[in-house]
Simulated assay, not measured.
Amino acid sequence: MPDILTAVDETAANVILSREISSLQPPPVSRTSTFGPFSIAWAVSTSFTSGTVDIIPPPTDVIRLSGVRLNYSANLKVTLDLGFLDFCLPRVCLTIPFVGRICTPRICLHFPTIEVPVSHASTVDFTADVRPSVTLAGDVWKVEAVIVGVPQLVLGPAATALLGTVGAAVTAALLLVPAIGPLLALASAVIFGALTVANLLGVLGALLTPLVAGLRIPLHKAPRLFEILPASGQDSAVFVRIDSVVATLDGSGGEDELILAIDISP
């Protein structure tokens, strides 16, 4: 029998998890992807808004988070290398009596590399299963909820519209190129046909998924040497040592709860 038993029901779990999920600040992630003549550099920052909590005891043995919202903001730099369109006009040579062979100069047209910044922000709602995890880190006991089921992130209409946003930004930049801008913009429109929505969303989804998979949500922490009575007058503080902490899900009492079983020693 453990020395201390404490229980958290679904009402309290909703309060605790909502607060902790909303305070999560995952570090920004970045990646560069290439699609033919296009190169897209991503930098994505995120935050979370909690949904609802359902404690499901064994045999399922998970805490189900429903309607969790992932808010993300992506800064992109689209690089379009049009060097593959470079060409040179053929030279024409003539042999003129008493002069010799004369050729027209070599004339080549080189297409530039265009860099265009694009900003995009949207949200993703998902459902995930988590399980309680207890670890001793140094001299601190940590109770966390760890995502064990990697949710499928379904990107919404705003993310789908990203392709149009990128295409419009690139075309506008190309139109500003002197002399050959309209020609470049036309070429870009043709090339963009090869860059599909699935390409962009696949990369964006791959960036966002690791921020959710394996996410650790803090629930509680306590020092291994725990003060139970503060110092008073001539009396020194009284401490106990927390020897073990075990977290389980239980529904045997008629209500689904997260149970912490704690063993202590003087």
Rank of each mutant, 00 (worst) to 15 (best):
L175Y: 11
L89I: 06
V203Y: 03
A173E: 11
A128S: 08
V118Y: 11
Y72L: 11
L195E: 02
R131S: 04
T79C: 03
P58V: 01
T135M: 10
L85Y: 14
V190A: 13
L155W: 05
G83N: 04
P26V: 10
F98K: 02
P117T: 05
N14H: 05
A169P: 13
I180W: 00
S47K: 08
L82M: 14
T135Q: 14
G156R: 04
V78S: 09
N199E: 07
A13V: 03
V212M: 03
V197M: 08
A247C: 04
L163T: 07
A13S: 12
L207Y: 02
T160V: 15
V62R: 08
F192V: 02
I217Y: 11
I4W: 04
D3M: 04
T113C: 07
V44W: 04
D263S: 13
P57I: 02
I40G: 07
L94Q: 13
F192C: 00
R101C: 15
P151V: 12
N75F: 05
V148K: 06
C103Q: 05
T11M: 02
F226K: 11
D3S: 11
V130R: 07
V154Q: 13
F126A: 03
F239D: 03
A121R: 08
L5M: 10
F87I: 01
K221N: 13
D263P: 09
S23I: 00
V44G: 01
G202H: 09
L163W: 09
I4V: 15
L225K: 15
I262F: 07
I55G: 00
A187F: 11
A187E: 10
R31Y: 10
P58Y: 05
D125A: 13
V166K: 07
D61A: 07
N75A: 09
P182M: 05
D54V: 00
L85C: 09
I107V: 15
T127M: 05
D86G: 06
A13F: 00
S23H: 08
D81R: 06
A187G: 07
L211I: 05
L109F: 12
A41E: 14
I114E: 06
L76I: 10
A137W: 00
G193N: 09
V68R: 03
T46A: 12
G254Q: 04
D256G: 06
F84C: 01
L163D: 01
T160I: 13
V177C: 09
L162V: 06
S45I: 01
S50D: 12
K142D: 05
S39C: 02
T49V: 12
T32I: 15
L208D: 01
P90V: 05
A121D: 12
F35I: 08
E10A: 12
L195F: 01
D129A: 09
G205H: 03
L184F: 07
L162K: 11
F84K: 10
F98D: 12
N75C: 00
P117C: 04
A213N: 14
G253P: 00
S265G: 10
I21N: 09
T165F: 00
S30C: 04
A41N: 08
L204Y: 05
G167S: 14
E255I: 11
V134I: 13
W141Y: 13
A231H: 10
V8N: 06
V197F: 02
A41L: 08
S23Y: 02
L207A: 01
V130M: 11
T32F: 03
P27S: 15
E227G: 03
I147Y: 02
P157Q: 12
L136H: 02
E255L: 08
I96V: 15
V146E: 14
S30I: 08
